[in-house]
């Protein structure tokens, strides 16, 4: 019989995951609170007008751009912008399009005309292609894509017309709050530890073993086969470690990008077993050391 270590602790002994300290608190607004008189300002997201007053409708911090006032909540659903990299899950196969879950308020749409056909040829989509759609992407498949367009109701239209986008095969999906993702030029990263991550703007993070450059068209078949090859144990452990590092950063509410993930990974190496990173103290320790290194770097 295996003897497992079980740690159950009292709620009162909970570790406070916060790594920030000493900062002056900003002014917080809560729903229904009056921000100012109506005439001076324009109302943005998170506000509404009533009785000639501008009131907050969410709890958060005020952001002011000239005369426009917005209240930003700590967390909400993903609000897409054109050009964002997202990771999503196929919910439904419909006529000439897929419905994709991207953690936004409404399901996103991936048109058949905005995917690359196998073999990379460019042509009109025929009826045969329509019938082949389920072979391309099935319900439950994970994809990476880019936001092509935002409709007036806020729903997104995606495209995968580049070789870096498309179906995701072997790896781990991690869901975090979208507000924790730092907007960067690049969201595809090959980390020095031999693992690649896709940090979707929508808060879905994909961790997978390092992929070789897939630009060469001729190797397409070979690549398709390599997708099903077993991943070796060291890679799997590294992936699990990265996942736990990201989870640690998220519990401490730290922004995620390649730098913070790499730092957290390096700091976590002092914990021999990947499992021990699930310990609240270890998570706080990793987050704190990462925070420290980022601070040092920005000061230089």
């Amino acid at each position: 019989m295996m003897a497992g270590n079980v740690s159950i602790r009292l709620a009162s002994e909970r570790v406070n995951p916060s790594v920030y300290s000493g900062a002056v608190l900003p002014r917080f607004y809560t729903p229904g609170e009056v921000i100012s008189g109506m005439k001076d300002y324009m109302r943005g997201h998170g506000t509404y007008a009533e009785d000639d007053c501008l009131k907050a409708s969410v709890a958060g911090v005020m952001q002011k751009v000239n005369k426009l006032i917005c209240i930003r909540p700590l967390k909400n659903r993903y609000v897409g912008e054109i050009g964002d990299v997202v990771v999503g899950r196929v919910l439904e196969v419909q006529q000439r399009r897929w419905k994709i879950d991207t953690n936004s308020r409404l399901d996103s749409v991936l048109q058949l005309s905005s995917v690359n056909l196998p073999g990379g040829e460019l042509r009109r989509r025929s009826v045969e292609d329509e019938q082949m759609m389920r072979q391309l992407l099935q319900e439950g498949d994970l994809i990476s894509a880019e936001v092509q367009n935002v409709f007036s109701d806020g729903s997104l239209s995606l495209h995968t017309r580049s070789l870096k986008y498309g179906k995701l095969k072997q790896g781990i999906l991690l869901k975090v709050f979208p507000s924790l993702i730092k907007r960067r030029k690049n969201h595809f990263h090959n980390l020095p530890c031999g693992i690649s991550v896709i940090i979707g703007n929508n808060g879905y993070i994909w961790i997978s073993p390092n992929v070789q450059d897939v630009t060469v068209q001729e190797q397409k078949d070979e690549i398709a086969n390599s997708d099903l090859q077993p991943v070796n144990q060291t890679d799997r452990e590294t992936m699990a470690r990265i996942r736990n590092c990201i989870a640690a950063l998220v519990t401490s509410k730290m922004m995620l990008d390649d730098t913070s993930i790499t730092y957290a990974y390096e700091e976590s190496l002092k914990y021999e077993s990947v499992k021990s990173l699930l310990d609240p103290e270890a998570m706080l320790d990793v987050a704190f050391l990462t925070q420290h290194r980022i601070k040092e770097m920005t000061q230089e």
């Binding site: 608190l25 809560t30 709890a59 700590l74 730092k182 922004m255």
Partner: peptide
């Protein structure tokens, strides 16, 4: 309201105040 403000003070991070 007090509970919400306490929660905001706890979960607040510096990037929330950065204006774009």
């Amino acid at each position: 309201d007090r509970a919400v403000r306490d929660h905001l003070a706890e979960g607040w991070t510096e990037q929330d105040t950065v204006t774009v």
